[in-house]
Amino acid sequence: MNVILFMVLAALAVVGGVVVILHRNPIKSALALIVVMVTLALLYLSLTAPFLAIIQILVYAGAVMVLFLFVLFLLNVGVESPFSTRRRRRVIAGLVGALMGIMLAGVVVIRAGGVPGHSAPVVGPEFGSMESTGTLLFTRYLLPFELLSILLLIALIGAVTAARPRWPAAIPFGHTAPEETPGEEAA
């Protein structure tokens, strides 16, 4: 892959990530995160993963980020006033983040010795396609796939249950629901 293109995409991803964690306005953070997601989708394309690039845009930039923005709008979250309270905390966060990133990248790069790192092996046109991903998903990864469907069902029910305002009292058969009393919510 073109070195310049990779550098541009990598710089865009890193700048986007920094904006996500540093911008005071959560809406802007979410928009920066969408930039990171799209950039990563382009990087997936460069790694011969076109199917995952599409999934990344559809699921992350499409569904998950819309959910985040929706919640931000719903809660009417304002701009975070004085940026993260104490200076000590900023220093600690920066140090731990930098240390973790360096350590992770270093260890993974060093330990990836068995992988031919500098030139990507030649692969056939079926690599990364929807068909080969699906074949593997329904053969070797069938059990995780099925467990995933159960997990999604649990998450669906859990999210709906958790976001409900309040469980309504059981209404006896033949009666109508009682009127909501205003102000009870605040109590």
Binding site: G17, V20, I21, V36, R90, V96
Partner: peptide, 13 residues
Amino acid sequence: GVLFGIGVAGVLL
């Protein structure tokens, strides 16, 4: 690794 570090810093910050 850099993106992961940024994420960690964001969680703490």
